[in-house]
């Protein structure tokens, strides 16, 4: 396999690269469209703001490349949010691989924002390497719309947060599998092993 992580100059690329390395998979970190198309698996990472991330994808000429990927691809955290058509965080269009808009999580009593920490999952897809009740690590202030693609959720106060999605060749994780202990490692292994 050839795993490529899309290089958007984000801060958390190293932790994702290190997590795959612990599974014995060395990743290329690249912004080269040809390298992305040649990879067997692609990861769209993301921390930071949606507007900045889309700006960087556009500046590198990668928007159509990412939309056109037909190999297994995984968006992590903001990377999953970018798969939707829009985000309340920015006026820029997002990738539009899935319909709908990402929205802000409203803070409330006993519900600080960002949603930061370990939440238990409800899982509806047995191909994710995840089990019902697994705790995984979240760090986000915006959440994806509930969609047919949702395959795992986490409860945050009264809000049900889509925690993982699957759609055609795309996987998405709102949580950080690279920092989610054994459960996160199982999820990354399942992605690496997945045969569409």
């Amino acid at each position: 396999m050839r795993l490529a992580i899309i290089d958007l100059d984000y801060g958390n690329i190293a932790s994702i690269r290190h997590a795959f390395a612990r599974l014995g998979v060395e990743a290329d970190v690249t912004a080269d469209p040809d390298a992305l198309r040649a990879a067997s698996h692609v990861v769209l990472p993301g921390v930071g703001a949606a507007g900045h991330a889309m700006e960087r994808l556009e500046a590198r000429g990668l928007v159509n490349t990412v939309r056109g990927l037909d190999r297994p691809a995984l968006g992590i955290c903001l990377g999953m949010q970018l798969l939707f058509a829009a985000s309340d965080e920015t006026d820029r269009a997002c990738l539009g691989i899935l319909p709908g808009a990402v929205g802000a999580i409203e803070p409330g009593p006993d519900r600080p924002v960002p949603h930061m920490g370990w939440s238990a999952l409800a899982v509806t897809d047995d191909g994710l390497g995840l089990a019902e009740g697994d705790y995984v690590y979240f760090a986000h202030s915006f959440a994806c719309p509930s969609a047919e693609a949702t395959v795992a959720t986490a409860q945050y106060g009264a809000t049900t947060i889509p925690a993982a999605i699957r759609h055609e060749n795309w996987w998405g994780a709102q949580f950080h599998p690279e920092r989610s202990g054994a459960a996160g490692a199982r999820f990354l292994q399942a992605f690496v092993d997945w045969q569409p």
Binding site: G11, V47, G48, H52, P114, M116, A139, H140, S141
Partner: peptide, 8 residues
């Protein structure tokens, strides 16, 4: 916060 996001 602008560069890396509030969660960082």
């Amino acid at each position: 916060a602008a560069a890396f996001g509030a969660q960082c």
